[in-house]
């Protein structure tokens, strides 16, 4: 097996997984966070707690339940199989589902916090000026909470990059399909191939560090500039 080639495959697969997951998370997370930031119902607390669960649950718990849910014997697995003709377990789609669940709090919480600090009176003002829902979202909410959006996207991306436990449980270690960087790294370590392991581990470390520098730098810059959320 050409390890170098498989590592590059794993790298691109991981980036692809993180990108797809982040896009989906922003699409799901923004309305969810908006609702959570505005709702006063008790039900919202339950949803909030559900969203936050991956923060404290071991990834293996999520992975274990997902593996069961993905089984064609169960509702999720069978519906997906009927809809797409593909099973969820051991596929890229399955990893996306797992990553979305696993990284959801990292996207929802910064957004929710940003939305909570957003001045809703501005929306009323825009409404009187003829701005519709999408118009207000694109031209007021996003620019005024762009720090929250950037934080959410970066954290969602970085957290998905570093995902291991869930993928280990539902991935099946298939090169090009489910063998992400962290799994490839684990594989190298288990096979005592420390040279390759160092490359991957070091690369992940530098990448994660760079992402966080970017995040903190962005926040610091915005803090010193105009008042933004």
């Amino acid at each position: 097996m050409n390890l170098l080639a498989s590592d590059i495959t794993a790298l691109f697969l991981t980036l692809q997984l993180a990108a797809v997951t982040t896009v989906i998370l922003m699409a799901i997370g923004a309305p969810l966070a908006w609702w959570l930031s505005r709702s006063t119902s008790r039900f919202a607390s339950v949803i909030e707690a559900t969203v936050a669960l991956p923060l404290i649950l071991p990834p293996t718990v999520i992975g274990f339940y997902l593996l069961i849910a993905f089984s064609p014997d169960n509702f999720l697995g069978s519906s997906w199989l009927t809809l797409t003709g593909q099973p969820l377990a051991f596929t890229f789609s399955g990893l996306v589902v797992g990553s979305v669940i696993y990284s959801l709090p990292f996207v929802v919480q910064p957004l929710q916090s940003g939305f909570q600090h957003f001045d809703h009176k501005l929306l009323e003002a825009a409404e009187t000026m003829g701005a519709g829902t999408l118009d207000r979202f694109l031209n007021l909410i996003i620019p005024l909470t762009r720090r929250a959006f950037a934080t959410a996207a970066l954290l969602g991306f970085a957290h998905t990059m570093g995902e291991f436990g869930v993928v280990l449980m539902i991935g099946g270690n298939i090169p090009g399909e489910t063998q992400v960087l962290s799994i490839a790294l684990y594989d190298h370590v288990e096979a005592l191939d420390y040279g390759r392991a160092h490359w991957l581990a070091g690369g992940l470390l530098v990448f994660s560090f760079a992402l966080l520098i970017l995040l903190y730098g962005f926040n610091r810059h915005k803090k010193s500039g105009a008042k933004q959320l």
């Binding site: 990292f106 929710q112 916090s113 940003g114 909570q116 934080t151 966080l212 995040l215 915005k222």
Partner: peptide, 13 residues
């Protein structure tokens, strides 16, 4: 703590 950067902690956090 990363989540809290630059703002007061939200309730959930």
């Amino acid at each position: 703590s990363v989540l809290n950067v630059g703002r007061t902690a939200s309730n959930s956090l």
